[in-house]
Every structure is written in C-alpha cells, then in structure tokens.
Design a protein around this nucleic acid. Structure first.
Length: 560
RNA sequence: UGGGGCGUAGCCAAGUGGUAAGGCACCAGGUUUUGGUCCUGGCAUGCGCAGGUUCGAACCCUGCCGCCCCAGCCA
C-alpha cells in the first residue's frame, strides 16, 4: 500500500504521547469528527477525518462520528447520508458511535439550568443590536447588560418560559456570566441559548430554543467521554470559553481542545459557502462534479480512498496557515494507480493510418501486458489490422527537435505490435488538413519476436475496425489562480477550460462495456475512471490525472 | 491601535541547545516497446529581521517586521 506504515509526527500526536505517558484520562484516547450537516464534505474535512480517526487507531482509542446539529435553519437530513457515506468510503468506522448533538438537547438544557443556579448564566432581554453594542470593540471593553443581575429564580422562570415558547424568536437569550471587559470577545457574556422556531430535521418542533456551538460542543465532548477535541485554528479564541464551560460545570476528566490549521489546496476553493455558490449557480454540475474538491467529486473523478489518506498523511498537521500544492494530491493517486491499475490503449484525437503493406482482411491478435508493474496482472489480446488510429499529436509534418514520433519518413514502434514507417500524409486539398497517414510496417519487428531493433518512439494505437467509440472528459484546475480567495470575487479566476469533453475517442475493444468506477491507465495519457453515469451506448471516462509529461516540458522550454 | 495564532527551500513539513529529516516540485544522468514507472545524484553555510546569552542557538532572552483569526442570537 501507499500509506507508510510508520506515520510522521506532529504536535498533536506529541501532546497525546505526553498525556499517555502521564496517564492522563487513565490512558484513554477518544476523539471525534463533528461535522455540521449543512453541506458536503471536502478534502479539508478528509484531513480532519484522517487526523481524528487516525489518532484513535494509532493510540488504541476510539473516534466518534458526531453531527453538530444545533442550528435547525441550516441543517438537513440530505447531508447526513452523504457525510456518513464519505467517511465510510475514506475507510473509517465509527462502529456504534454515531451521535448527534441534538440527542443531548435535554442534557444540555439541564446543564444550562445548573449554570443559572450557580449564578453563572442569565436571561438577557437586550436586542441583537444592543448586545452587539454592549459587547464593545476589539480595543474597548464591553458594558454589562442591565439584565445581568437577575435573581436565580427569575432566570430559572424566564429560561423555562423561553423553552416553553412564551417569547418571540430573538427576543431573549441565555448568556453565560463571565467578563464584559475580557480582551477576548468570546468571554464577554457569550450567548449560549437562543430562541429559534423552525423545524429541526431531527427534533422537529420539540424545541424552540437551541444551544450555541460554544455551549453544546464542550458538553457534547464531555458526554461522549472525548479526551482530545481537535478543531481548526479559528476556534483557538474559543478555548477559554470551552474550558470555562467545562470547569464551571465541574466536568470530571475534562476534554482538551487543540487546534490545527485546516487544509487549503492550490487552484481550488474549500469553503462551504463558495462550493455551494459554484454548485447553485451552475459553474459546476453538482456537488459531485469531478472538478470539485468535495469527497464525492474526488470519488467520481476516480481518486481512491487510499490516495487521499496518503495525501493527508504527507501534508502533515501544524498550526501554520498554508496552501498545499495540488501536485501533491496528484502525485498520491499516480503512485497508487501506477502499480494497481490496468493499462489500456485509447486514442483521444484519432488520426487514421493505413498500413499499405499489411493484408487487407488480416487481423492478428497480439499479446499486451496488463500492467508492467505487476506481472501477475497477466496479458490480454488486442487486434491489429490494416487500418488503425493513432493520436493526431503523434504526427508532425515538420517535426521539431527531439520529436520522437511520426513524421514523413520516420519510424516508430506501435506498442505491442510492429515498427512502422510513415510514407506520406494525405491532406484535404481544400483545407490542407491531414486526413490520414500511409505507412508501411516491418513484419520482422513484431513485439515479443526477439527483434531488437530500436526506434526512438513508441505510440499507442487502436484497430479502426475493432475500436469502441467513447467519450472522454479531460479535467483541468477549476481555478487559474493558485489562491482564488485573493480576488474580491473568487470566481474571477475560474478556469473556463476546466472541462474539455472529447466525444469521438477510439478505445480498444476491452473497454466496450466498462463498469462505472473502474480505473484504467490510458497508455501515454493518464489515469481514467469510468464515470458514475456512464451508459452502455457509449462509455464515458473521466481523467483522474494525467501521466507526467516530459515532452510537454520540452515543448514549453522550446517555446512551443 | 485589544486578544489569540503563525513565520524553516518554489510548496508542505520534522526539529524543542550539539551544528538543518522527509515528501512534492524542479534540475542532471541511467534503465525503459508508456517522453510513464524505476534507479542515481543535485537542490537552505541557512531557519522572518536585528541584537543578546552560550564553548555552541532554528531552538533560550530582548526588540522589531510580516501574515492569519476574533466584535453571529453560525459552526
């Protein structure tokens, strides 16, 4: 497998090792992956999933899947199944530990009551705008709410009534009583419960008050026995509040929040908001568009779970914001697919060639190795005949330096077949367009015959009479800019050519009725995956990633 | 201009006082019936900058500079 058996170190693992050494939490390691069911998972989530489940695996602990569903207006069942499917597809198992923050609403309510009784929370009647004003600014302290000193009894009564639906949405909130002068805005009497009518996708209309993240999260962790609560950097400012909740409520075995930098990938966007915009406005064809960094997009594109996990392992975990180059991800799939996937010949832009000295009706079945990296993959038979297709780009009438392919008078080998020589190009008299090539073959050079004559280039090809017509979709970066977020409108650098659809490709008969999801290497092109929606009439292949292309580099260096 | 976090090669990232791991990318060469793979070698006299402590500093101290996050009844 691609994944290194020995994973690299990072600051989170180091802390956990230290905790284990000190027998903190009685040697338990328990993490959780806590998505909000309000969107599809992307590769940034994969990093978190690999981290959380990976740590549990490595240290003999457990990892829960918990839906952080405390906001009824944003969440939907639609996302639950897709998230579960994605986590499973990545290869992780939460066993019986599938949880929902919404399952804790009763407990959470009790904890809130407890806070009130300890005079650590109060019902506040300030409006949203007033709360904002009272909060102060980054440089000035806030003011205490006039409702801050209500009695326990009054607070209990009001909170009860909030729950019972006596008050309008937004008219009152429950706030933690902490410190309006704190330099950390999160500690300036944060709202921990708000009134919000609306149908929660799981609890329906049972509740009209909902806990805020800052209140629900530490307590959900506590309820589940989580020891290490790993989240992204922007929550670092919330840690004092997280700890305050845990301490104030006297939670034993307090979970510990730790923050890491989330993943950014070059030439794409990662925020749910932006991905949603691309989907909703038709810039892409849905959440599983193969150009998207969503898990479902990558899956449809043909990426493997192993390659994504390998990627997450290689990029490491740290606290520095960074943008990982997408070349890293591409490397990971190539590495896996190179030794695991069958080779096949596919001509994407066909150019007809006629082998003049090859008998009219003869067909030879030639041996072709399925995977040179894996002799156990065996051989298959491919038909060779007088009329073939080769790649248009493999012929140049006036070849540049270092061009090792077909040109008038030049010889090349046809992979698994014969050495052929280009005798002449037939052009359209009107347009000058090259219609076909006339070649001759050397009967003594059949592959495997022991012939050792060397030629500079080897081309893939397909027998015209036996070829299967196919559609091939070539994907390129969705954005032209390494960091689309730099622009005022991230869409400014959208790549208009991120999808190129080729509808007249000719592939070998092996690919007649391919099973969706099957991956192949198209010789000299790259790795391709049969599209999820590929029909039987004409197979559709998605390019996962191209092969590395030295010739392209040479051309670039030559200035084309 | 308050608070929190971060600066190690083009991109990631180890390293936590003993003289800069690893990967990607890139460059050069070898092998090759995929211009793929594979193999070999190269790629930071340097760790944001400037001082200081020390026999010795990316690691400790001081002062600067730069970037990110925070004023949702979102998560």
């Amino acid at each position: 497998m691609t994944t290194n058996s020995e994973s690299s170190s990072n600051f989170i693992k180091n802390i956990i090792k230290e905790d284990l050494k000190n027998n903190k939490n009685n040697g338990r390691v328990h993490t959780r992956f806590p998505p909000e069911p309000n969107g599809y998972l992307h590769i940034g989530h994969a990093k978190s999933i690999c981290l959380n489940f990976g740590i549990a695996e490595e240290f003999g602990g457990l990892c829960n899947l918990r839906f952080d569903d405390t906001n009824p207006v944003k969440e939907d069942v639609e996302y639950i199944e897709s998230i579960k499917e994605d986590v499973r597809w990545l290869g992780f198992d939460w066993d019986k530990r599938l949880f929902y923050a919404s399952d804790y609403f009763d407990k959470l309510y009790q904890y809130a009551v407890e806070l009130i009784k300890a005079e650590k929370a109060y019902v506040c009647d300030l409006t949203l705008e007033e709360i904002r004003e009272y909060r102060g600014t980054l440089t000035e302290p806030g003011k205490e709410s006039p409702y801050r000193e209500r009695t326990i009894e009054e607070n209990l009564d009001l909170f009860e009534k909030m729950k019972a639906g006596f008050f309008a949405d937004g008219s009152r909130v429950l706030r933690a009583k902490i410190d309006m002068a704190s330099p950390n805005l999160n500690m300036r009497d944060p709202v921990i419960y708000r009134i919000q009518r609306g149908n929660h996708y799981r609890t329906g209309d049972r509740w009209c008050i909902y806990p805020m993240y800052d209140f629900a999260h530490p307590l959900s962790d506590a309820v589940e026995g989580v020891t290490h609560s790993i989240c992204s950097l922007e929550f670092a400012d919330h840690r004092p509040l997280y700890d305050w909740i845990i301490e104030t409520l006297n939670i034993e075995q307090p979970p510990q929040q730790m923050e890491f930098a989330r993943l950014n990938l070059s030439s794409t966007v990662m925020s749910k908001r932006k991905l949603r915009e691309l989907v909703d406005h038709g810039y892409v064809d849905g959440w599983d568009d193969p150009r998207l960094p969503t898990i479902s997009g990558l899956r449809r594109r043909g990426y493997t779970p192993d390659s994504i996990r390998d990627f997450c392992e290689r990029i490491g975990v740290a606290k520095a914001n960074s943008i990982v180059n997408i070349a890293m991800l591409e490397h990971c799939v190539r590495e896996e697919l190179n030794y695991s996937v069958q080779r096949v010949m596919a001509v994407l832009r066909p150019l007809k060639i006629v082998i003049e000295n090859y008998p009219e009706n003869k067909v030879e079945m030639l041996d072709a190795e399925n995977n040179p990296e894996d002799p156990g993959a065996g051989l298959r038979k491919i038909p060779f005949s007088r009329v073939l297709y080769v790649e248009q780009g493999d012929f140049r009438e006036d070849p540049p330096k270092k061009f090792f392919r077909l040109a008038p008078g030049r010889e090349v080998r046809l992979k698994h077949a014969y050495i052929i020589k280009c005798e002449r190009a037939v052009k359209d008299e009107q347009t000058g367009e090259i219609k076909e090539l006339h070649c001759t073959y050397d009967p003594d050079t059949r592959s495997g015959s022991g012939e050792t004559r060397k030629v500079k280039g080897t081309l893939h090809w397909v027998s015209a009479a036996h070829a299967v017509e196919a559609e091939v979709r070539l994907y390129d970066n969705l954005f032209l800019k390494e960091n689309p977020d730099e622009d005022d409108d991230f869409k400014a650098s959208l790549n208009k050519d991120s999808l190129e659809t080729l509808t007249s490709c000719m592939v070998e008969p092996e690919l007649k009725d391919p099973v969706p999801g099957t991956r192949y290497q198209f010789l000299r092109h790259g790795y391709f995956c049969v599209d999820t929606y590929s029909g039987s009439d004409k197979p559709v292949f998605n390019r996962i990633v191209s092969l590395k292309d030295t010739w392209a580099k040479i051309q670039k260096a030559q200035g084309k």
